[in-house]
Design a protein around this nucleic acid. Structure first.
Lengths: 209, 209
DNA sequence: GCTTGGCCTAAGCGCTTGCTCAGCCATGAC
DNA sequence: GTCATGGCTGAGCAAGCGCTTAGGCCAAGC
């Protein structure tokens, strides 16, 4: 509903793939509102108002308020997955690729922290079927990162006693950026990505030398 | 309202300091409900029902639904702060104390992940005055952890290029446990505390030897 | 035995919520 | 011209919300 199946490159302008224009304006308004106050505290009147429409206009483009959330969650998760897959299939050592993945994933959560907040913290409001789809996307995301770390271990570059646990910690660190980013202004998404890539490499590096 | 000022030891039985019994039952019911569905999606009827009372009984013990949230948030933040202060003022090297702090903080977020979820993710629903109080508690919490890391740097035990950023990352890692813990059963709070203490020590350890 | 005060309930008030519906208006095909 | 169509609005419905009120029950104090 509103998303075109496309192999077009991931745009830097967000939500470009959503048409028509009114549907896109609604999604952007919903992201803002959901990020600010949460899904349940946001009214359909508020969303429609931010998009410059009457409440009824929302239901021409989306069957329910939940479908709007699903749209945001779906697009966001697909984007995050593609970011990680790109980093994973890049050039260089496992350390290079892990650093690239963490940098990209962190940057995305910082740069689009409003979207990321909705994507990461409002899963509970999805319907059962929609949630199942999203959970599957998250599993795939996890697998990509675990794969990179596994390769580093196999190559002898990393020393990781608990692969699943370390993967979880790495993902968790990046995701939590969405929670606090914006409340402290001093750090840019790029700087943060660099810092986090460094910290993660330290986590997987062998202790002795 | 319901909290006794006390220097008694932190009890393992949660909410023991809240009297009378009915007020405590309400708090416990509210924690469950808020953690499951979020503050805004929880009704006062649901809370009262879980506590075995009529909706009106809630308002004998708490002026508003928000005051219940504040109670939970306040007690939770004080508890977390005390955990970290205890670890910070303990014996041993900075590395020992940092490990102890991370282990305790992580364990708490895992063991009481329902409470922690409310404490960490429902701040936005607090009133302005209550939020200000809580934000102050969080600043103090942050300072404690930064203090430990600073001591390690001063002693030459740690090599940390960005003190504030690393502190943020350490706290963030522990806090995010509340988001996902419970969805994967395999790990106990103790194991997770050990794993995270190890990962954090790796993050602050000097690279060369 | 009566009063007091703490704790509770049934009923419901005023309001907001997600969502619907009848109808308006610009556009484009014929 | 005319008629269908897609995008939109104003008005409003049924349900559910946070919270209040009037009053009942019962143990403790005198």
């Amino acid at each position: 509903m509103g998303v075109e199946e496309t192999t077009a490159p991931v745009a830097n302008v967000p939500w470009q793939q959503i048409t028509p224009d009114a549907a896109r304006r609604l999604v952007i308004a919903a992201v803002e509102a959901f990020a600010e106050r949460g899904y349940h505290a946001t009214t359909t009147r508020d969303i429609a108002g931010r998009a410059g429409m009457s409440p009824a206009a929302l239901y021409i483009h989306y069957k329910t308020k939940e479908e709007l959330l699903y749209q945001i969650s779906s697009v966001g998760h697909c984007l995050a997955l593609r970011l990680l897959e790109d980093a994973s299939s890049g050039e260089g050592t496992p350390a290079d690729r892990l650093a690239a993945a963490v940098r990209a994933f962190t940057r995305w959560h910082a740069e689009h922290h409003t979207t990321a907040r909705v994507v990461q913290y409002e899963l509970g409001a999805l319907s059962e079927e929609h949630l199942a789809e999203i959970v599957d996307l998250r599993r795939r995301t996890d697998r990509v990162v675990r794969g990179i770390i596994q390769q580093g271990v196999d190559a002898g570059d990393f020393a990781v006693p608990d692969l699943a646990g370390t993967t979880l910690a790495v993902m968790s660190l990046c995701i939590d950026v969405a929670r606090w980013f914006g409340s402290e202004r001093r750090r840019s998404p790029e700087e943060l990505g660099g810092l986090y890539a460094d910290l993660v490499l330290r986590m997987v590096r062998p202790a002795a030398c």
